[in-house]
Amino acid sequence: MTTAETRALVDIPAELLPLISLPPLEVLSDARARGAECVWGGEPLSTATAIDLGEREETDGGHWFPRACRPCARRAVLVARNEHPGLCEQCADDSIICKTLRSLRALALELRR
């Protein structure tokens, strides 16, 4: 594996996945819904370059498997990081001790590499 291939492998912790907003399934192509293309940008993905965004379940019981390219995943994590303090009671009291905010910051830094 080359450095570029190993660099793309980032595991997003399960507790952070719900904080990352995704496009609605009904507007996505089949390739984006099954993870063959970036859920946001549409770039083709491979197992070496894809960031897994977790299996998602729809209200009808169907499942889909969004994945993203590294730059799009980082942008989405940054949005989640910026929105989190306004939704978190701990952040309102003291954002420095919020574990979720620290995890989002660390993930954004990891995706920057």
Rank of each mutant, 00 (worst) to 15 (best):
A48K: 12
P23Y: 04
D11E: 15
L19G: 03
A68R: 00
G35S: 05
Q90Y: 05
D93H: 07
L45K: 04
V77D: 07
P23E: 11
I97L: 10
A31K: 13
A73T: 00
T49Q: 12
P71M: 09
A8M: 07
L78K: 13
R75F: 03
A8T: 10
R113M: 12
A108S: 14
L111I: 06
E43D: 15
R67D: 03
R7N: 15
A73V: 03
E5V: 04
L78G: 09
T100K: 08
L25S: 10
W64S: 02
V79T: 11
E55I: 01
E26T: 09
F65T: 01
T59P: 10
L25C: 11
A80Q: 07
W64H: 10
A31Y: 02
A36L: 14
A92V: 00
R75N: 12
R34Y: 03
A48T: 08
D11G: 07
A33S: 15
A80L: 11
A8C: 15
E26F: 07
L101G: 00
A8E: 14
V27G: 11
A76M: 12
C72Q: 10
A108C: 07
P13R: 11
L104Q: 01
C38V: 07
P18A: 03
G54W: 02
L45W: 02
V77N: 03
G54T: 00
R7S: 15
R112S: 12
T49D: 13
R102N: 13
A4W: 05
V77K: 01
P66I: 00
S29E: 15
L45Q: 08
E110P: 02
A106P: 07
R105E: 12
W40D: 12
E43S: 12
A48Q: 14
L45C: 10
L109R: 14
C69V: 04
A68G: 14
A31C: 05
R7H: 12
I51Y: 04
T49K: 04
A48R: 13
R74E: 14
E5P: 01
C69M: 06
P23H: 08
V79A: 11
